[in-house]
Every structure is written in C-alpha cells, then in structure tokens.
Design a binder for these strands. Structure first.
Lengths: 202, 202
DNA sequence: ACAGCATTAGACCAATTGGTCCAGTCAGGA
DNA sequence: TCCTGACTGGACCAATTGGTCTAATGCTGT
C-alpha cells in the first residue's frame, strides 16, 4: 500500500512529492466512499492536509486530473492484489478464491462501505468520455492480468480470457451487493459462483 | 417517504402530464446517467418542465425524497421486466436469457450509457444510511422475484435462491462492464455465465 | 357564486462548488 | 551569496448548489 513509483513527470527531477501523494490517497479514499461528484474540494484538501495551491500545482486540470491519477493508483493496488493472490496459487480457482478473501478483508477494514474507486469516477457522467475510457482501460488491465494468471495455471487461452472476464463481472457485481448489504461475506462467497470446469474447492 | 395513499390518480394521467410523474421520470433518467450528486436541481427541473415549487410540494424533503421515489419507480420497472421475461419461459435459464436480452435492448435504446438508477442513488455516500437501506430493499425484491420464478420453474427452494442471487450479481457486474465499454453485448452474453446445476432444460 | 384546497410560479437565499491568482517560502545550483 | 524555479498558503471569485417562502392560479364541491 506504500510504494507508488509513478512514471516520471515531464522533465522534473523531484522524486514523488509527499503532497502529491497525499492528494491521490485522499482522493481515492473519498471518491470510493462518496463518489466523484459527492466529494468537494474543500473536504478533499482537508483530508489530504494540503492547500488549494498545491492541488493545482500538481494537477493543473484540478479535480478531474486528480481523479484520473487516483483511479490509476487504486487500480495499481488492485493489480498488485491480483498478482499477490495468484502468484502462489496452485490453480486458477484457488487464486481467484484468494482474491475474494483478500478483497473481503480489505472491504471490512475500510468500513464495509467503500466501493471501487474506478467505477466511482466512471459514474461521474456521460459527458466526460475521457473518464469512461480511462475506466475501461483500467478494468481491461484487471481482466488481462487475471487472464494471464489463468493461462499460466493451465487454462487454454480462450478459456482463460473467458474465466477472467467472468471473474471480473462477479467481482464487480458482488462488490456492489456486499456494499449495499454491508456484508463482506458476499465477496467471500463469490468464488463459489465462478463458472469453471469441475475442480476441488480449497 | 411521502405516503403513497394520496398519490394514486388513475390511468388518464399518462397523456396529461402529471407533474409528480414527470419529476420522477426525469430524476430516474438523470440519476442513472450522471448519478445523484452529479445532477443539479436546475437541470432536473428543466428536464421535468416543472418549477421548484412543485418539487417541494410533491416531495417535501426535496431531492432526497425524489431520489427514493425515482429509484422505487425504476425498480418497479425492473420487476416488471423480470416478470415479463420469466412468465412465458419454459425454464429458469430461458427466462434469465430473456431478461438479459431485454435489458441489453433497453441499454442500447438509452444511449449505451445509463446505469442502474438504484445503484446511482446508493452511491451517493455513506452518511445517508436510508439511501443504502432503500437500495438494499429494492435489490432484495429483484432477487426475491427471480427466486420465485426459479422455484416455479422447478428449482428447489435453496437452489432457486442461490441461482437468483447469482443471476443478480452477474447482472450488476455485467451491466457495469457494458456501461464502461458501451457495449450491450456484454449483457446479452451474461446468460452464458450463469452457474446452474446440471440440467438440460433449455 | 364562493370557499377551500392543491398546485404552480419563481424570486430569493446562504452555503458551497470548482477554479484563479499571486505573494510568499524554501532548497539547491551558480 | 544570490538566483531560480518548484512548491505552498490562502484570499478571492463567479457560478451553482439545494432549499425556503409567498403570491398567484387553478380546480374542486357546495
């Protein structure tokens, strides 16, 4: 949850200003709880402990720039979670199960409310197509990463892709149901619902 | 919530522009596109063609009251869709498939963007627990209705409930992926991903 | 006709929104 | 040392936010 080795900003020598980081973290947290439009700059800055000037220094386009950065950061965390879960797994099903458990635990720790930061910005509205496209790219990277693991764990390419997409859909749907019920067990039970060739459940 | 007892002017209202109805429709449409917080009252009233006074007459608590009513209305439409799809279906799987196709068609007609109005209000934020509870109730009614059909179509009670919940999760997850990709085929293909006991009823 | 109600119309409001601007502060290179 | 540019701090802004209030306007039944 710590290291953010962002791609080097254009012609700057500074290594990841803490303020910029705090802004991203605060944005990710608030957006996933209250949505993009539901989060005001005032609150954002208060949580981040940064003045307005800093925001517009680090993110010249303001809130929207920050939202893109925050969702990318959150997506990277998710990718890390996926890798961490699948890397030691003996099978795709086992890895997927671990993802569910890790996510459920995170969900509990965050107060049984927070949703997916990426969809939180996506839902900002149709007029901002850049947001939608960004979310599409991030989600695609989740699916691709999952498919890669599936293939590595023995599934043929076509099946791997299908399983990854199926898993992603379950994850998002389940996440939402867990959120509305404030019950992380929904996420924990998701692996049960995966459509897979018969294997043993660990 | 406003009491429903007074608010039932019968069928002739459709053509003659009942203000309360127009408000609900406009709210449902805007919320599902831009979210609760992303929709301003000004725009809302412009779309509905109603002045502010009417809003606060019909919905004394303003925007939040309207949101509850709009999501209930939208949920009722969804329930009608579910019933219409399952009623003539020869099997649960067939009915579920029809739901997917109907929903996909609706999605296309609405501009390949609109999401679920119920989740749109849910995502308003954690401070309003009434919203969350309302969404939970509505979603539960979807699942219950689906489970009822499943049972009627031959599934044992326990399995029916599980199948309904699984279907709901797929629906929400798929809907979201369809939205981010602007591709209704994701929804159309959902029935493929349903987890069902080995039965050859379709 | 009138009374009494439901509804509409929109002026008005304080608070908040996202955003701009600039005077400062500070570290590091010359 | 002084200079320079990155960074911070916050005053300030127009626009918009959701919401209130009251005068007018119907539409009932009597």
């Amino acid at each position: 949850m710590t290291d953010v080795t962002t791609a080097s900003p254009p012609a700057s020598s500074q290594a990841t200003a803490p303020t910029r980081d705090r802004l991203i973290r605060a944005a990710a947290e608030l957006f996933r709880n209250k949505g993009y439009n539901g989060t005001g700059l005032a609150e954002l800055l208060a949580v981040a402990g940064a003045p307005k000037g800093s925001l517009y220094h680090h993110f010249p386009n303001g809130k929207s720039d920050l939202a893109l950065a925050a969702s990318t950061w959150a997506s990277d965390q998710m990718l890390a979670l996926i890798d961490a879960a699948f890397a030691p797994a003996p099978s795709f099903r086992a890895g997927a199960t671990t993802v569910c458990y890790k996510l459920a635990k995170l969900f509990d720790k965050q107060g049984k409310w927070s949703g997916c930061p990426v969809s939180a910005t996506l839902f900002a509205g149709p007029e901002n197509d850049a947001f939608r496209q960004h979310a599409a790219d991030l989600f695609e990277s989740w699916i691709a990463a999952t498919a890669r693991h599936a293939q590595r764990l023995g599934l043929p390419q076509e099946e791997a892709r299908a399983a990854a997409e199926n898993f992603y859909i379950l994850l998002q749907g389940g996440w939402q149901l867990a959120r509305v019920r404030r019950d992380s067990d929904v996420i924990r039970a998701l692996h049960t619902q995966m459509q897979m060739p018969p294997q043993k459940t660990d």
